[in-house]
Design a protein around this nucleic acid. Structure first.
Lengths: 249, 249
DNA sequence: CGAGCACTTGATCGCTTTCAATAGCTGTGG
DNA sequence: CCACAGCTATTGAAAGCGATCAAGTGCTCG
């Protein structure tokens, strides 16, 4: 609960923090950072562990430092929809709300930088840099949510899978020195079930469409989780999205 | 472009404005309001007219005063997904962005209170009340978007329709002095096609499920658009949502 | 009265789900 | 070292839900 700093996992100097320039604290000056430093603490979670359940009292807000967390909504009968995929620097919790609105789960091993809600809210009032950055991040999340709504409402299973692979590749892929300049590879941080919860599909359909993309030569699958994309443009064509745009692919 | 005040449609005193206490200006003091008053202008649109197209230059932000607007995304092949339903007091546009990210269309006759983007952004810097309120509204929209994602990803056609009717009823319904205390009625502000774009269905499926709900006695349809809900709890049961919650239904 | 539009209804198709069995991997214990 | 449990993932067969294609209805407005 307090700083149970897992040595390998938890940094403690904001200056060294890997998300220093992208998280909610990105705009803070060093004096503001010093104040944040005083109220922050780290928590770590193993892959699969719950961070908090929807409806539970939530007396902190947090940034993802390393790892991935997911927000999910669950219906009475168990149908589950992921509504947020939280990557390093993403923010969890809502200032001004005291219970969690979603289930938060560690999808991979996870380190979070937490702030007790009360002092954080007070700091938000005092330092506009935090509120400014939070607004910006929230607007970005809203855009992402709207992209996701298009995917859920109108894309085919194959397009959904391709779109998810593109999203993950964009953030995690390391370009390989393979034959093609635009070949990339990465390890999927999600199980088939997590993918299905993200995409509004069943895990069987996810598996089938992964196999289909493999058979089409769009992706290469090794050991279930390691994905190689020989030609990124080929994958982009499968997403159904506008590709004309230009050079930024 | 300037204040082409359509007499019946456009108020011009902020003090009399119907959205004064819910819009982005809700927190403003009277001196701040006076500044806003100077940079604002009204625009009106007829039902069905486009407000702006995705990708177009957008040099204003705005609040919906009366009527309904929709945000939609369209894929190359024409598949369309509504990603925002803008009701009175809702905000359009993103400070710091200079092109529209979505198509904005007047779903009903529409009056918007517009601010030129540049002066508005300057005011945002100067008056924290505006940014605070915008953050709050954006967080609310994000929650709504996540609820919507659950609907798109996991609900059946029947549940989708019921959920949409509940959303509209909650905002537009007038309680009727009918037999049941919880009977409500309202006019649907959306065509079947707009409903289908909202729900990720075809318009035929929307029509069929509306008929099915009618046949089940959950709703009464008169003249295609006027809906009566004899027992609101019955409709709630059809949404698939948690109903246990409590008295706030 | 007829054109245009929004909506409904019917018949059929096909994609995704459902139910079920099998394969592959990892770790544990005999 | 192998057997087996437990988990994740794949694959098959069948069913069902919503999409598609196609008329047909009813209302409004000229």
């Amino acid at each position: 609960m307090t700083t149970t700093a897992h040595p390998k996992a938890a940094p403690h100097e904001c200056a060294d923090c890997p998300i220093r320039h992208r998280a909610v604290c990105a705009r803070c000056e060093s004096d503001e950072l010093a104040l944040l430093e005083e109220i922050k603490y780290y928590r770590t979670f193993q892959a699969g562990q719950p961070v908090i359940w929807s409806g539970d009292r939530m007396d902190f807000v947090a940034s993802v430092v390393t790892g991935i967390a997911s927000l999910t909504q669950v219906m009475e009968d168990g149908r589950t929809q992921m509504v947020g995929l939280l990557l390093p620097s993403d923010f969890v919790g809502r200032p001004g709300r005291d219970t969690a609105a979603y289930n938060v789960t560690a999808t991979t091993d996870l380190v979070m930088c937490c702030f007790r809600k009360k002092p954080f809210e007070e700091m938000m009032q005092a330092t506009p840099h935090i509120a400014q950055r939070l607004l910006e991040m929230t607007l970005d999340e809203l855009d992402a949510a709207r992209e996701w709504m298009l995917l859920l409402g109108r894309k085919t299973a194959r397009e959904k899978i391709a779109s998810l692979l593109v999203i993950i590749a964009r953030r995690y892929a390391s370009a390989t020195s393979g034959k093609a300049a635009n070949a990339v590879q990465f390890d999927l941080p999600l199980t088939r079930e997590a993918m299905s919860d993200y995409l509004g599909l069943t895990l069987e359909t996810v598996s089938r469409q992964m196999s289909a993309l493999k058979k089409s030569g769009v992706i290469v699958i090794e050991a279930n989780r390691h994905i190689t994309i020989p030609d990124f443009d080929l994958l982009l064509d499968e997403t159904g999205d506008d590709t004309d745009g230009g050079i930024l692919s």
